[in-house]
Design a protein around this nucleic acid. Sequence first.
DNA 1: GACACATGGTATAACGTTATATCAAGATTA
DNA 2: TAATCTTGATATAACGTTATACCATGTGTC
Lengths: 334, 334
Amino acid sequence: MTGKPKLETVAREAGVSIATASQVMRGAGRISDKTRSKVLKAAQKLHYVPDNRAASMRSGQNREIGFVINKISNPFNAEVISGVSDLLEAEGYLVSVLDARDDPDRQGRHIDAFIRNGRGGLLWVPAEQTPHKTFDLLTAHRIPTVTFLRRPEGSGFDHVGIRNAEATALATHHLAGLGHRHIAYLGGEELTAVRRERIAGYEATMSERDLGPAVIWDSNDIKQAGMEAMMALRAAHPETTAVVCNGDIVALGACHGIRRLGLEPGRDVSVVGFDDIPDAAVATPPLTTMAVSPYQLGRRLARVMLERLSEPDGPVSVSEVSAELVLRATTGPV
Amino acid sequence: MTGKPKLETVAREAGVSIATASQVMRGAGRISDKTRSKVLKAAQKLHYVPDNRAASMRSGQNREIGFVINKISNPFNAEVISGVSDLLEAEGYLVSVLDARDDPDRQGRHIDAFIRNGRGGLLWVPAEQTPHKTFDLLTAHRIPTVTFLRRPEGSGFDHVGIRNAEATALATHHLAGLGHRHIAYLGGEELTAVRRERIAGYEATMSERDLGPAVIWDSNDIKQAGMEAMMALRAAHPETTAVVCNGDIVALGACHGIRRLGLEPGRDVSVVGFDDIPDAAVATPPLTTMAVSPYQLGRRLARVMLERLSEPDGPVSVSEVSAELVLRATTGPV
DNA sequence: GACACATGGTATAACGTTATATCAAGATTA
DNA sequence: TAATCTTGATATAACGTTATACCATGTGTC
C-alpha cells in the first residue's frame, strides 16, 4: 500500500473510469450491478476513504455541522448536544462541538475556521458582546445558521430559545402563592440577554403582586459561589424567605448556604432553580426547579437546522419553548 | 458583492497575480511592502476569507485537531478540553470536540469523517471495544494520533494517561493506615482497561497488607446509582468500613448512601474518590479523593500532539501522570 | 563589460473530487 | 430500414488553493 488510495486508484483496480467509480461511491447515476460490485470490491480492497475536502469543494455541499457553545461542561448543554447530534447524525450529518467559553475572540476564531472549511451549517449560542461583523460574515457567506438560547437583536437567523421571562414569572408566582413576600433573585453576574429576560419576569411578578422590594443578587455560576452569595444575601436582607435562582448550580450552592446558616431549605428559605440538571433530582433536599428538557430542546434545534438546510430561502423560524415548574422539596409555605 | 471572493478576485482588485496574492496572504515568499499592502487592502475591502479545503488539499497541511472523547459533560473531561485547546490554540491550531459517548459505532463515524476531511491530528479516548480496523485506518492514513487515558494494547500511538494502579494502591494504603481492614472497591460497571488497572492496584494492596477479603461492587457512573450501590454493598457486607471509588461522582453518591443508612461519611465509613471534580471540594463533607489536574493533563496531551506534529517520525511517547491523594473529610480512623 | 547574484514577481501544474456533456451500442418504434 | 430512445459508461472542465519553476529586472564584483 503506497500512498493514500484515491478515486483513480480504485478506478484502475476495478478497470473502469474515474467518473464511474465516483458514481458508484455516491450511489448516483446509472451503473450496472456488475460494474457496481466490481468497484465496491476494489474500494474495499484498497481501504478507500473519499476526501471530503475535494468533494465538498466541488459539489458545494458539506454534511458537517458545527455547534459553537459556551460551557461544554454544563450538564444542560451536554444534554442539548446529545439531542442535537442524535437527530442530525440520523440524517447523515456530523456534529462537531466548539467551546467558545463565552469569549468573543475565541468564538470569532471558531466561526472563522468554520467558514474557511466550508462547513454545512452552524448551531450557535452567541457569546455576549458578539461583534456585528461576526453576524455579517455569516450572512455574507450564506452559512445556514440557527442561534440558540441567545437571540442577537436584529439578527435574521433562525432561533430556538426558552421563554425566560415566563419561566421566572411562574417561579415567582409559585413562591408568592406559598405566602412569600420577600423573594430575591439570585445568580448570574453580567446582564446577559438571558438573565435580563429572567429578571424581567421576576420583577414584573413582584410588582404585579405588590411584593417586594425586588432584590437582585449576583453570583458566579459555580456551587461554591452560590453558597457564599446566599449567605451574603441573607446577611444583607435577613427578611428574605425565598429565592428564584438563575440556574440550578447556583441554587444547589444556595441550599448549602442556607444549611450553613443553620436553616433548612424548603422550610426556612425556599429555593427555585433553573434547568433541572440531573443533580437537582438527587440533591438533599431535591431541588424545585424550572425544567426544559435539554434533550428535546436539542432535537428541536436540530430540526430547525434540517428545515433550513432543505429550504435555504424559507421563512425565518423563531421558536420558544416554555419551561415547566417541577415541584420538589426546596419550596414550602412561609 | 456577487459570489464569494476568492484569491483571484483579490488579485484582480489589487492588480497582481494570483500567486502573489497567495504569498501575501500566507506571509510567504518575497514580496515588496508596496504590493503587500495593496493586496492586504484589497482582501479587506472584499472581506476575503481563504478556503481551507483547497489550501489544505493542496498543501497537505491542516491545523485542525479533533478530540474524540466519551462524555463531554463530565467536568473532568471539560477541564481537559480547556487545557488542550488553550495550548493548541496558542499555537494556531483549532480544536473541535466530538462526543462518541462510548459507542464504537459513533466513534467510528467520527473518526471516519475526520479522515475524510483530512484533519491535522487526532486526540482520542478510544471507546472500549474499539475494533481493530479503526486503529489500522488511522495508521494507514498516517494521522498524527495521541490516545488519552485508555491505551489500546499494541497500539503504536503516542499516549498520555494516569497511573491508575498506583493511585488506587495509594488510596488503599491510606485507608489501611487509618486502621481499616475491610475495604471495598466501588463503582464502574464493565471491566474497562482503566477500571481493571484501578482494581489491580486496590487488590494488590489488599493482599500485600493482608487485608481483606477484596470486594468489588459495580455501579453506574451517576450519583443516584452510587448511592444505591453503597447501600446494597453495606447490606451484603456490613463489615465494610471503607470504600475506594472508581470516580468522584460515585463517591459522592456513596456518601449520600452512607447518610441514608444513618451513618456519617468519614466517621463510620471512609470514602476515597477519584478525579477531584469541582464538586468534591464543596460537598458536605468535602470528599477525600485522588487528584490529577485535568487542565494540566490536557496541556500535556496538547504538548505531546505538538511534538508529534513537528516530528512525524519521532519516537513514540508514552507518559503517565501520577495522581495525588487529596485529604479532605471523608476518610478517618476506624 | 561580463559575470554572478539578489529581488520581486508570475505562469502553471498539481491536490481529489463531482457535474456536465458526450458517446457507443443495443433495444424499440414507425 | 431509418429514426429514436435507453442504458451504461467515459472525458473533461471545474472547485480554490499552494509549490515549483521560471523570468525579468536591478546591483554588485572583479
